[in-house]
């Protein structure tokens, strides 16, 4: 793999380093020997720490009702209409919340940066509130709100997970979205791009969608991804308010004695989230293209 590196050379990263650096002289090699051993040790330990439980869970999820190994838990997931409908609900909430929160936050971030920079601190403070206030408190407040709401509001809004939860997930997603978008907007020369676009005759809407949005695309995708991950993982508020979202369904499955299915569900969720992250980085990578020097 890495004939010239002269070291352990069993890991990709080590091999790469070995190829990039010139063959070390004897004293350097001895000095580097110890850190390399440490590196391997830490790598192995953390791999066991992270992958061990995951592999055990996967193995557990493969155990069928009669004690042998098989995919029956997974086929039950696909077959169960309760799981399917909760997954659909959660995905709907996630996508709508992601779109809404970005279309609210992007104009806000741009407006504050261009016109009201003195509000930056206030905005940072306000967007931190959803993190500072514990979910249980939020849920208790929402419960109070639901109890006192007129019945038509209850039947129109609170009776459905989609309308009942999405607005609150939008609020919960604000901290991550704001920070992701703010970083993205900071990385471009916002004022010049906006001025240029305006002087060429573009309205604010066109400037926002055709000039700013494509140039903070990675940040927007990042913000959306975080929001989706949040919606697919949030359990406290939705279960306290008795909405059956996907994560609530996972817990219910495990409580009802079908632990195998619940673990299989967790594995599926994990794989799904990983795929999201992976496709995001793929999209970001393709946008930049080969030989690009843009830092975005």
């Amino acid at each position: 793999m890495s004939a010239g590196s002269g070291g352990v050379g069993m890991f990709g990263a080590d091999a790469l380093i070995g190829e990039l650096t010139p063959a070390p002289s004897a004293p350097t090699r001895r000095r580097r020997g110890r850190p390399r051993l440490w590196r391997v040790t830490i790598f192995v330990l953390s791999a066991i720490f992270f992958l061990g439980p995951l592999l055990s869970a996967f193995k557990f999820s493969l155990i069928t009702a009669n004690g042998s190994y098989g995919l029956s838990n997974y086929s039950q997931i696909v077959g169960s209409s309760a799981i399917r409908s909760s997954l659909v609900t959660s995905l709907e909430i996630a996508v709508i919340a992601a779109v809404v929160v970005v279309s609210l936050m992007l104009p806000t971030v741009v407006w504050v940066r261009l016109r009201r920079p003195q509000l930056t601190l206030l905005l940072e403070g306000v967007t931190l509130l959803p993190i500072v206030i514990p979910p249980v408190v939020v849920a208790a407040g929402l419960e109070e709100l639901q109890r006192n709401a007129p019945s038509w509001v209850v039947s129109l809004v609170f009776n459905h997970a989609l309308t009942g939860l999405t607005p609150f997930y939008v609020v919960l997603a604000m901290p991550f979205t704001y920070r992701a978008l703010d970083t993205g907007v900071r990385a471009i020369d916002l004022r010049t791009l906006v001025d240029a676009s305006r002087s060429l005759g573009a309205s604010w809407t066109v400037t926002l969608t055709r000039v700013i949005l494509p140039n903070v695309q990675t940040a927007v995708l990042g913000a959306m991804f975080l929001t989706i991950a949040l919606c697919l993982g949030e359990v406290v508020i939705s279960s306290l308010l008795l909405y059956t979202t996907f994560p609530v369904e996972i817990i219910q499955e495990s409580l009802s004695g079908t632990a195998g299915i619940s673990v299989a569900l967790s594995i599926v969720t994990l794989a799904f989230t990983f795929l999201l992250l992976f496709s995001l980085s793929l999209i970001a990578g393709r946008r930049l293209g080969p030989g690009s020097s843009r830092v975005l």
Partner: peptide, 12 residues
């Protein structure tokens, strides 16, 4: 028509 000091072409 305006030309700016900073590079102002739309990167996308």
């Amino acid at each position: 028509g305006m030309v700016f000091q900073a590079y102002s072409l739309f990167p996308n």
